[in-house]
């Protein structure tokens, strides 16, 4: 089996993989990083969003082998020890999650959104940018609020 190497959450990792192994399978099954979830098979739900070289990517729609040498960040790599990332804290503060299954993808999407669109995000922008992330629990109300608050908090920190 071919071997793939990449950096995940700052650590070099490698593994022998079947060529069809998706990034999400490499993360969940090889590295046992189970915070990245799979909620659909048509690349729509966004539960699997991680960052690849800083970009939000659906890890269910990328071959692990394609990402040889990439710098990958998952939800497990966002907090600084027990100190939550401001976006994680904002989801908690604003009750932006219920069952928690979509949450890692939502947070990773939100963090990248801030990197592209800045710290002041209006409701319309946030809702549009969440096109690729489904949540069945929250009705999105508190997710939208959490992302706006998280974006502000990320700015305050910087």
């Amino acid at each position: 089996m071919p071997k793939v190497s990449m950096t995940v959450n700052g650590k070099p990792v490698s593994g022998d993989v079947d060529s069809r192994t998706l990034l999400v399978q490499f993360l969940r099954e090889t590295l046992r990083l189970t915070g990245t979830h799979v909620g659909c098979d048509t690349s729509q739900c966004g539960c699997c969003v991680v960052h690849v070289d800083g970009d939000a990517v659906k890890s269910c729609t990328a071959l692990a082998l394609s990402l040889e040498g990439a710098d990958v960040r998952t939800i497990e790599g966002l907090a600084n020890g027990d100190k939550l990332h401001p976006m994680q804290e904002a989801f908690r503060e604003n009750h932006g999650l219920q069952c928690g299954f979509c949450t890692p993808g939502m947070i990773m999407t939100a963090v990248e959104l801030v990197s592209r669109k800045g710290h002041t995000l209006d409701e319309k922008t946030i809702r549009e940018e969440l096109e690729g992330n489904l949540c069945r629990c929250t009705g999105y109300h508190n997710i939208v609020k959490a992302i706006a608050a998280g974006a502000t908090a990320m700015g305050a920190k910087a």
Binding site: H37, V38, T74, I75, G100
Partner: peptide
Amino acid sequence: VLRKEDFRFVTGRGRYTDDIN
């Protein structure tokens, strides 16, 4: 009150059935 369970969910430490091997 803010939720106790959220710390594990926002950090990817939730443990769902498919996470069990």
